[in-house]
């Protein structure tokens, strides 16, 4: 795989790939490859994968298995333990997942700042849809009222961040009710459609999220060929 975006003199960009429905393992493999390429190339900028997963539970490397509460076996949903921070969460159809695989500014020494940027992009996206979301004090992710609508969990390897954010658009939330989401028992979860009280156009939301991420990461968007 050649780095076709690494033309000499080109300003760093966020190259967006809209992948539609992707199985978790395939998306993970793609992320791994892109991280490797970004590490090897020493290039600034990054790739942005936009997609949705088949139902899957993922857990951070340090997450407590008990937080799954036996849901995977009970519901027949696969589980992946992955190199991101945070506890257990769910991804599934109707949820937009965005993986910005980007070289972090400052040699990756401001992880918190990077997370806050991703958070700002989620808030921005919600606001654009007329939903006033917020980040409760001391939390990571975004909430509408009392319920969580967007989550964040990243990994950093050689100053390249991967994994990213998920935004509930019209996915089922009952899968969340079967686990301890993000280490908080009984955490209420909601979707953007519930928040706006009507249907949303997925590609519109996806476009807004991509634009918001590009703004937050200060990288111009570029559609992948």
């Amino acid at each position: 795989m050649h780095l076709d975006h690494a033309a000499v003199g080109q300003a760093p960009r966020l190259r967006v790939r809209r992948l539609g429905r992707v199985g978790y393992a395939a998306a993970l493999a793609l992320q791994e490859r892109l991280v490797e390429e970004r590490v090897a190339s020493q290039e600034a900028g990054g790739d942005l994968l936009l997609l949705e997963h088949d139902p899957v539970y993922t857990m951070g490397r340090g997450a407590d298995e008990a937080d799954l509460m036996g849901a995977p076996a009970r519901l027949g949903v696969p589980v992946f333990r992955i190199s991101r921070g945070g506890g257990v969460t769910f991804h599934g159809p109707g949820q937009i997942v965005a993986y910005p695989i980007v070289r972090m500014a400052g040699g990756g020494r401001d992880v918190y700042g990077h997370i806050r940027r991703l958070e700002a992009a989620l808030l921005d996206t919600c606001l654009g849809l007329g939903v006033v979301a917020s980040v409760p004090e001391g939390e990571t992710g975004v909430w509408v009222g009392a319920a969580k609508v967007g989550s964040i969990g990243i990994g950093v390897r050689r100053s390249v961040s991967f994994h990213g954010v998920s935004l509930n658009v019209n996915n089922r939330i009952d899968y969340f009710e079967q686990i301890v989401t993000c280490r908080v028992p009984g955490m209420p979860v909601t979707t953007l459609e519930r928040a706006v009280g009507g249907p949303l156009d997925r590609s519109d939301v996806e476009g807004r999220l991509a634009a918001a991420l590009a703004r937050a990461l200060e990288l111009p968007l570029e559609e992948a060929r």
Binding site: R61, G62, G85, V111, H114, I115, I152, G155
Partner: peptide, 17 residues
Amino acid sequence: GDAIAEIETDKANVEIE
């Protein structure tokens, strides 16, 4: 530059070198 450990802080896992 070799990765030696994975550290968790906040919502991030970071490989340190």
